[in-house]
């Protein structure tokens, strides 16, 4: 299992690097201009090296299948992707909220919501911490550092 992961990572690196090289660089006359004046040369070198590393990962994963599994890097066990997606979504919502409805509203909603979602549900404590954190951060940024935060209405 572990060795297979490295195989997949290696196999994934190859097309990504190739795609980046083909799509992301200005159309210069390929390798004709000098290295100094060619904007594509250095990224090209990095991507080729990355592809070599990908190949190396695949080869060593295949070789290792015959050998002992100790020392194989593979993958961290026990990660729960569903929770990750939910967590990321919550953070994205907060950042979007910060941008569109401003610091106060977003923060006062986000802290209790995340805490609730993660299973910490003591209303008094949550409310107290939310208020303290929200106002403390606001005070430090707007009053001490004189950096305006996004306050609704804009």
């Amino acid at each position: 299992m572990k060795k297979l992961t490295d195989l997949w990572i290696g196999a994934g690196v190859l097309p990504i690097a190739a795609l980046l090289y083909v799509t992301g660089l200005p159309k210069t006359d390929a390798m004709e201009t000098s290295i100094a004046m060619n904007p594509a040369w250095y990224p090209w070198l990095l991507l080729v090296l990355a592809m070599l590393c990908g190949l190396g990962l695949m080869v060593s994963a295949l070789l290792r299948r015959a050998g002992p599994s100790e020392g194989a890097a593979g993958i961290t066990a026990g990660v729960r992707p569903g929770r990750m997606v939910a967590g990321l979504l919550a953070i994205c919502l907060y950042v979007a909220g910060f941008w569109f409805v401003g610091y106060w509203v977003a923060t006062l909603l986000f802290i209790p919501a995340l805490s609730w979602g993660l299973g910490h549900r003591k209303p008094a404590e949550v409310a107290l911490v939310t208020l303290i954190v929200t106002s403390l951060v606001w005070l430090v940024f707007t009053r001490l550092l004189l950096i305006p935060l996004r306050d609704w209405p804009f």
């Binding site: 907060y94 986000f110 802290i111 299973g119 911490v129 954190v133 929200t134």
Partner: peptide, 9 residues
Amino acid sequence: PLLMASVVV
């Protein structure tokens, strides 16, 4: 959970 939320903020 509260610490994590504060870190995000």
